[in-house]
């Protein structure tokens, strides 16, 4: 029997979104007479949080699928371009300088960090840079951003800033609202559109670079679309949710088996599955009791993702053997 992933994932999302709105430390019974009183919780707290989970998860899922297609490597992940660590560095600097106190400046700092990461990639790899040079440049930028983030943490002006930085870096959707949605929505949608348009070129690339070029693919244009698409969705995601790992790496693996394995056929299911995964994980974070607040989303995803990925690797090893 052939499983069609898109209708299945859409059905799962249609079920998960309303459930996520009802779930939380305060459970809302939609049939209860007092349900109208819960409308502010729904509209001001849970709905923007659910929308953000869909946006960030969808963006990371699609970016992961595109990166694996672009690098022709199932272990590739959107973080390889170094844009996420640069966005995180931008956000950390907003804490360090105190600008994060004005809530809307934090995501803007993160977006500026992501933009700087993309500009650095352009500067290092140039117009005609190949895949290997771009990957190395991305790794170098990620390493530099990580070092500067650690430096900012070690030189934190006060314990409060230090705590804020460390907590933020763990990734979360707690206490986010409609302004965060407004910040993340345009770059994420634009990034998804750009990534969607890479589909045919990524399909051709499975035959190698020369065959792809013979099929009409312009490698330079594809590379810039990848940088722009991944940069926009990852930058927007980090700006509103911090560092969220594993989604871009694991989700394409989850859905690949249910597609014909063309990278273009993986983009939409990966976006939907990423959105679903982040929505469910965020609900679990809200529901799991934890002293002093709720489990951080980035930690939860790594806790779920690492064993899952290990299982995948073992299955791959058995397949190879």
């Amino acid at each position: 029997m052939t499983v069609r992933p898109v209708p299945l994932l859409l059905a799962a999302l249609a079920l998960a979104v309303p459930l996520s709105l009802l779930a939380g430390q305060v459970w809302i019974d939609p049939l209860a007479p007092a349900a109208r009183n819960a409308l502010p919780i729904l509209i001001e707290l849970r709905l923007p949080r659910a929308v953000l989970a869909l946006l960030v998860g969808g963006g990371l899922g699609a970016a992961g699928a595109a990166m694996q297609g672009y690098l022709r490597n199932p272990l590739a992940d959107p973080g390889l371009f170094g844009i996420a660590p640069m966005a995180a560095l931008g956000a950390v600097l907003s804490f360090w300088t105190g600008y994060a106190a004005q809530g809307w400046l934090l995501p803007l700092f993160a977006l500026a960090g992501a933009a700087l990461g993309m500009a650095l990639l352009a500067l290092i790899a140039g117009r005609t840079g190949g895949v290997a040079l771009f990957t190395l440049a991305g790794m170098m930028i990620a390493s530099l951003a990580g070092a500067l983030t650690s430096l900012a943490i070690s030189l934190a002006p006060n314990p409060f800033a230090l705590s804020e930085i460390v907590t933020w870096l763990m990734g979360a959707l707690a206490d986010r609202g409609w302004p965060d949605v407004l910040i993340a929505l345009p770059p994420t949608l634009l990034g998804l559109l750009v990534l969607w348009r890479t589909g045919p070129a990524l399909d051709a690339l499975m035959l190698g670079e020369s065959a792809a070029r013979s099929l009409g693919v312009d490698p330079a244009r594809l590379l810039w679309r990848m940088v722009a698409g991944v940069g926009l969705v990852v930058g927007a995601g980090v700006a509103v949710a911090g560092i969220i790992g594993f989604v871009g790496l694991v989700v394409p693996h989850l859905v690949r088996l249910f597609t014909d394995r063309r990278p273009s056929a993986l983009l939409l299911p990966s976006a939907l599955a990423g959105a679903l995964l982040l929505l469910v994980a965020d609900c679990l974070c809200r529901l799991l009791p934890l002293a002093g607040g709720e489990l951080r989303l980035g930690i939860a995803l790594s806790l779920i993702g690492a064993p899952f990925f290990l299982r995948l690797l073992l299955a791959m090893r058995r397949e190879i053997a």
Binding site: M206, S210, G216, D260
Partner: peptide
């Protein structure tokens, strides 16, 4: 150019296990 010239590279790589 792609419609006029078909090119078969030497390595025969296919990165994903498609049908």
């Amino acid at each position: 150019r792609a419609r006029a010239i078909g090119f078969l590279p030497q390595d025969g790589a296919v990165a994903w296990d498609v049908t």
